[in-house]
């Protein structure tokens, strides 16, 4: 398995993201002064409780919102340029696709957007549908798919352009244990191929098993950044305990606490 290089694939420099809330005239800060870099070839976990600013950061990386301050780049290209997204694959937390299309038509449309050659497209679609085990349903309308099938299709579309960077927003949410295992397998396979994976998750066990480094965000600020082992070191090697301590959760469950 290739070791992560020091070249930064994602660079965030003093990033600030604000949003307008209906109950306030002043913009609220979602991400405050966030500086971090994701290195080529690493699996990077982006952690934080709900409302910590993970999705806001991802929204900036994907060009959905613009930063109020600081800068963000992918492969050295400002994220506001669509070309920055040419080498990335994205799997949203909730996967909704055009229900009037079949899986094959959806992938073919995205392939055209990525500029894949027609000769390559068919082979790539076959390969991906086989990987996510949707080959049998390729001609079925997506509207008839189960949630798990849609999530697998989401993974297929995220891999379509052979991305060098994969951004996954809670990739295992809503999947059964088998589906989760499959996703973990795919992440590890991508890592082995030297790809960079940036993903947010609430599943700390999953993060521990696949991530090289993690960042923990709370109230829009970076509270911890380092390898899983380094962060968990002060909490008897438990990432979960370290996470709860870092976000200031006073009533963290104790290992020997009696069951209620």
């Amino acid at each position: 398995m290739p070791a992560p290089s020091m070249t930064e694939v994602i660079s965030l420099d003093r990033l600030q993201v604000t949003y307008h809330s209906p109950d306030s005239r002043e913009p609220k800060i979602a991400v405050d002064d966030l500086t971090l870099g994701v290195r080529q070839g690493e699996v990077f976990g982006f952690l934080g409780p709900n409302g910590a600013g993970k999705t806001s950061t991802m929204n900036v990386l994907l060009g959905f919102t613009h930063a109020a301050g600081g800068s963000a780049s992918i492969f050295g290209v400002d994220v506001r340029q669509p070309i920055a997204r040419r080498r990335i694959g994205y799997l949203p937390e909730m996967t909704y696709y055009y229900k009037f299309l079949t899986a094959e038509e959806l992938l073919r449309t995205y392939a055209r957007i990525f500029g894949l050659a027609a000769s390559e497209t068919t082979a790539r679609i076959d390969e991906l549908l086989a990987l996510v085990e949707l080959g049998h349903a390729r001609k079925r309308l997506i509207g008839t798919y189960s949630k798990g099938m849609q999530q697998r299709l989401g993974l297929a579309q995220a891999l379509l352009n052979r991305p060098d960077l994969l951004i996954l927003d809670e990739p295992t949410s809503g999947l059964d244990p088998l589906g989760r295992m499959k996703v973990r397998e795919i992440i590890l396979r991508l890592k082995a191929a030297g790809k960079t994976v940036f993903f947010s998750s609430h599943e700390l066990g999953e993060v521990e098993s696949v991530c090289d480094r993690v960042a923990i965000l709370h109230h829009g600020q970076l509270r911890a950044l380092g390898s899983v082992a380094d962060i968990a070191q002060t909490d008897a090697g438990s990432l979960e305990k370290a996470f709860l301590r870092i976000i200031g959760w006073a009533n963290a469950p104790q290992p020997n606490a009696p069951a209620v």
Binding site: G63, P82, R86, P92, Y96, Y98, F114, I167
Partner: peptide
């Protein structure tokens, strides 16, 4: 509403396109 916009604009698609 269907959030298909997000998957689409996460690809190299500009707002003008």
């Amino acid at each position: 509403e269907s959030r298909t916009l997000f998957t689409l604009l996460a690809k190299p698609v500009s707002r003008w396109q």
